[in-house]
Design a protein around this nucleic acid. Structure first.
Length: 195
DNA sequence: TGTATGATCGCCT
DNA sequence: GGCGATCATACAG
């Protein structure tokens, strides 16, 4: 099984994969943009859906890496993760924000909102803008409707790490990664440190 | 700029 | 029955 995609080895731990995803372009049916904010989750850490073991909800994170894990949050919003590690471990990277690049009109139509800055600034917003829902759980990221485009290998983006957002457990783990200075984050990074 | 609150539902801690 | 890896709105300062 090929776990390499967009120049990233998805069989690595999620906190290793996550910072490498900053700057990668994600398209979904041709709509999307550059990743500017992600969070890593792993079975060995209690904030992860994997922590309790495999269930009907989280099974795709226990499958092969470089696939999608889509879950519903608060009964309203969908959230997109990329599965990491070897099959059976349980780990993923939550895609929290994109800098919109392709299909701006489609995103605006789905979001019912003009402000480019708010189109994909948050995991639920991003899925609404791209049209990602439950049906797109457990799909290979190497095939349509997904398309990943590697970042420029020459210019490494400046990545900051800090604590994750919206969780109540393992709050001190610095597994949130953002593109330094990006205007498209769900929240500004305060007190982050360079990776 | 920041904090509080309600919406709404699949899956369990 | 309770709880979220959230978002939009309302209101205070």
């Amino acid at each position: 099984m090929n776990t390499q995609l967009a120049g990233i080895d998805f069989s690595a731990p999620s906190h290793i994969v996550a910072p490498q995803l900053i700057g990668v372009t994600v398209l979904f049916n041709g709509v999307g943009g550059r990743i500017v904010e992600v969070e890593a989750y792993d079975r060995e850490e209690p904030a992860s859906h994997c922590y309790i073991g495999q269930t009907a909800r989280n099974f795709s994170m226990f499958g092969p890496p470089a696939r999608s894990y889509v879950y519903q949050s608060h009964g309203i919003h969908w959230c997109l993760n990329f599965v990491c590690r070897e099959a059976g471990h349980g780990a993923g990277v939550l895609i929290r924000a994109l800098e919109p690049v392709e299909g701006l009109d489609a995103m605006r139509a789905r979001r019912g909102l003009d402000d480019e800055r708010l189109l994909c600034a948050g995991p639920g917003r991003l899925c609404e803008a791209l049209g990602v829902t439950r049906e797109h759980n457990n799909l290979p990221l190497a095939k349509a409707p997904f398309k990943l485009i590697a970042r420029d290998p020459v210019h490494r983006p400046e990545v900051l790490a800090g604590p994750r957002i919206g969780i109540s457990k393992a709050v001190d783990l610095p597994w949130r990664f953002v593109l330094a200075g990006s205007r498209y984050l769900s929240k500004p990074m305060r007190g982050g440190h360079p990776v």
